[in-house]
Design a binder for these strands. Structure first.
Length: 818
DNA sequence: GCAAGGTC
């Protein structure tokens, strides 16, 4: 690979300090590793010697902390009032290293200069590949002779790491491109819609939840809105639910051994007459017949409530019948059933289970998990992997837990071959190729500085892990099917034979209920046979676990960000969470979704994100080019944005359902609506927009107000003024949009045309710096000061119409200038 | 003041 006896100096960069430390530790096995400080106090530099394919290397190992760079608009477009939001679809964007990452950048630059190789140890996912290219950009700027390599590893395990060093590859540009696409689309869509809807609605309504409207931001994001959409959609389902009455026949039988409750196998019947007829048949026909129907197995851990939107609850007892109906046992089935332990723990499962078992929010779960990870008690908490690598020493992890006062004895039983409790964990088939499932990495019987949540989450991680390597619980199930007048009823009971993993996984249970013994062909008289009624109930509000589930299925967010999106909805006052972790939309959240829904857009549905995700896949495989995907996606979104803007009345109507109009809606709404004529020639930063003041007069003012006070007052004789799509062919910098004027007939000479096309002219820098009477009137043709339209320099050259119709107002008088 | 994605 390289010649000579001098060792190659290799700069290795990992995505986070912990990985740098771990990999350096593995490769330097046997010692000789030195640690020194970099410029960033979190990102140390590890140094040691290593031999790669026979080549002596001096290894320097450091890290970044996630993305090194950020994407944002060019300075000129960063301020909210700097431009019409529509321009954000074309405005130049820049990738830059933010201030808080500059020290990491400097370390990379300094170390790069003294190295020949750069080896990238970033996580093996798309984001990791993108970060790799950020690192490459910084490092090769400092040393363009660097030989750049990528290490591919799937776990921080000796063999994996050593093998990946021997099989270095080049970084994959396509993976990084896919992330570039996502970043740019998210930024442009997010910023444009956020600015638009904030400026449109914030001041137009009394937002009762906010102390000060000025601080309210009505954000839009391709992840936060679909998440809100899930909440609103469920809320609407509940509101639109119409209870429906149903009927069902229930049967019980008391014997010496106990009571059995038989359920009608038809379930619920919505036709009363039909139900009554069958019921009559049952009580009049004592003879039972034998059926050959297979017994359906009802999974005890998939409850109806979780599967069906409408739950049914009997609430009315119609009639009693005592005694003589004869039931015959048509079938008795006894089977062994297994209840399997969960798959190894992923981030989303951790969040869902913490919410279900302890009602800890996903945000708090991630905060505490990060803490436990930092302190070395659990493995990396952001993972999608739900199967362990075959090389993981699972028994060693169990061994560590043997001393625990509560679950230590279970760990001992697991390791005892005589117990036969061990089972190699099954996986769910997900592997992010970057991190193992969440598991304990250090024993603790509780630390003094731990909060209750720390205790609970550590316990959950440990018990979950122990459960994963345990045998499933074993139960004996009996299902008895009886036949009354050809109607089938069934009852089942379960006895748990071996608890196995349930012994340690106290969060799950497996309900056992006994029923009396029945034998095939046995006849008995039902103790009660009743026709009961009930009503269908609406589904419940979404719980945090439900919400995470919906997001996961629809591909909204990542394991590391889902909790952020949920929190954002609460922070933005789009949704609330009750004590039972159930989410409801607020008025604001509902209004926004309603507004977009009324427009007929699915901006609040997950499809947009799903489309982006599939486009990203195509980019990452090379099936589509980055520029092509960006172009088409942004073009579509831009069209959608324009459409939404022209349909802004729908948003207003939806908001009016919940909020009172404030009467204020001035400059901001104007901008959201966008009547931009040209770029401001004074500050050169913001746009000039056409506005009508409360006194009825028109003006063209800079959006940079009050920082920039550039303004052009239009003649008071105007009845109407509107920015057109015609652009001036002379004025620079373009585009300069022409304004259509309509004068008041009575205020201008009778032979003057009321319609007039002009442009808001270039206010030169020199004239704008002078103190100016704000009421000074500009030339109506080019909107410049210092001359009247009859001597307007631009008139002679191009606009014959304007020339013949020039008009000026001076000293309150209209004078016609031909 | 805006997105979502990394991460401390």
């Amino acid at each position: 690979m390289s010649s000579g006896g001098r060792p190659i100096r290799v700069l290795n960069v990992a995505e986070k300090p912990s990985v740098a430390k771990a990999v350096a530790g593995i490769l330097s096995q046997g010692g000789g590793m030195r640690v020194r400080e970099g410029r960033s106090r979190f990102n140390k530099i590890f140094e040691f010697g290593y031999t790669i394919r026979g080549q002596q290397c001096q290894m320097l190992f450091t890290s970044v902390t996630g993305h090194l760079m950020e994407l944002d608009f060019d300075d000129r477009y960063r301020k909210w009032h700097s431009c019409d939001p529509i321009q954000l679809y074309r405005a130049p964007v820049v990738k830059y290293v933010p201030e808080d990452k500059m020290d990491i950048k400097r370390t990379l630059e300094e170390e790069s200069r003294n190295c020949q190789w750069l080896v990238l140890w970033l996580d093996c996912d798309r984001e990791g590949e993108n970060i790799a290219f950020e690192v490459v950009e910084v490092c090769t700027q400092a040393n363009r002779h660097l030989n750049v390599w990528r290490a591919r590893f799937s776990a921080l395990i000796d063999r994996d790491i050593r093998e990946s060093v021997e099989a270095l590859v080049r970084p994959n540009q396509l993976f990084a491109d896919a992330v570039d696409v996502r970043q740019e689309i998210d930024l442009r869509i997010g910023a444009s819609f956020t600015r638009f809807q904030t400026m449109l609605l914030r001041d137009a309504f009394h937002l009762d939840f906010a102390r000060d409207n000025r601080n309210v931001v009505l954000s839009y994001g391709p992840c936060q809105f679909p998440t809100l959409g899930f909440i609103v959609e469920r809320y609407w389902e509940i509101q639109s639910h119409e209870p429906e009455e149903f009927w069902t026949i229930n049967c019980t039988h008391n014997s010496d051994e106990g009571i059995a409750t038989f359920n009608w196998m038809r379930g619920h019947m919505f036709d009363y007459t039909c139900a009554v007829i069958i019921y009559e048949m049952c009580i009049q026909e004592p003879a039972a017949t034998v059926s050959v129907t297979e017994v359906a197995w009802n999974s005890s851990f998939t409850t109806n409530a979780a599967v069906k939107l409408s739950q049914t609850v009997p609430n009315y007892n119609h009639e009693w019948y005592w005694g003589s109906a004869c039931s015959k046992v048509a079938k008795v089935r006894q089977e062994e059933k297994l209840k399997y332990p969960p798959h190894p723990l992923t981030t989303i499962e951790l969040e869902k289970r913490a919410s279900r078992y302890f009602r800890i929010s996903s945000e708090q779960t991630m905060k505490v998990a990060e803490d436990l990870y930092q302190a070395g008690f659990i493995s990396y908490p952001r993972t999608e992997t739900d199967c362990f690598s075959q090389r993981t020493d699972l028994r060693a992890i169990v061994q560590e837990q043997q001393g625990h006062p509560v679950w230590g004895s279970y760990a001992q039983r697991l390791l005892d071959p005589g117990e036969g409790l061990w089972r190699n964990p099954s996986g769910g088939g997900h592997d992010d190729k970057a991190h193992p499932p969440i598991h304990p990495t250090k024993f603790s019987s509780g630390e003094s500085r731990w909060s209750q949540d720390h205790h609970r989450l550590y316990e959950l991680v440990v018990r979950h892990f122990l459960a994963c390597v345990s045998k499933p619980a074993v139960g004996a199930e009996t299902t008895v099917e009886v036949d009354i007048a050809s109607e089938l009823f069934s009852a089942s009971g379960r006895v748990i034979l071996e608890k196995n993993y349930l012994d340690v996984y106290r969060f799950e249970s497996w309900g056992g209920s006994m029923i009396p013994t029945y034998t095939f062909g046995q006849q008995f008289a039902a103790t009660t046979l009743t026709l009961d009624s009930g009503v269908t109930r609406p589904p419940t509000l979404l719980s945090e676990a439900d919400l995470l589930n919906s997001m996961d299925k629809a591909g909204i967010g990542t394991d590391a960000t889902m909790h952020d999106h949920i929190k954002k909805l609460l922070d933005r006052c789009y949704a609330t969470k009750d004590s039972n972790t159930r989410f409801s939309p607020t008025n604001l959240g509902e209004a926004l979704v309603m507004g977009y829904d009324d427009m007929g857009y699915e901006l609040w549905k997950p499809y947009l994100r799903a489309m982006m995700e599939s486009d990203m896949k195509l980019v990452s495989t090379g099936a589509k080019r980055k520029a092509e995907v960006l172009e088409t996606c942004l073009e579509q979104m831009k069209a959608c944005f324009l459409d939404a803007r022209s349909n802004k009345a729908k948003l207003f109507e939806a908001m009016e359902v919940f909020f009172e109009r404030s009467g204020r809606s001035g400059a901001d709404e104007q901008q959201a609506g966008g009547d931009i004529t040209r770029r401001c020639g004074v500050c050169q930063e913001s746009d000039m927009v056409l506005r009508r003041k409360p006194d009825g007069n028109f003006m063209v003012g800079c959006l940079g107000f009050p920082q920039c006070r550039n303004v052009v007052w239009l003649p008071g004789s105007l009845a109407e003024a509107a920015v057109t799509t015609n652009t001036c062919s002379i004025c620079t910098p373009g585009p300069v949009f022409m304004i259509q004027f309509k004068f008041r007939r009575l205020e201008i000479p009778h032979n003057y045309n009321v319609d007039h096309l002009a442009r808001a002219g270039p206010t030169t820098t020199s004239s704008s710096n002078q103190q100016r009477n704000p009421r000074q009137i500009a030339c109506t043709h080019c909107m410049q000061y210092g001359h009247s339209s009859n001597v307007c320099p631009s008139q002679v050259s191009h606009s014959s119409m304007a020339r013949s119709q020039g008009v000026n107002q001076q000293n309150g008088k209209i004078s016609y200038l031909s």
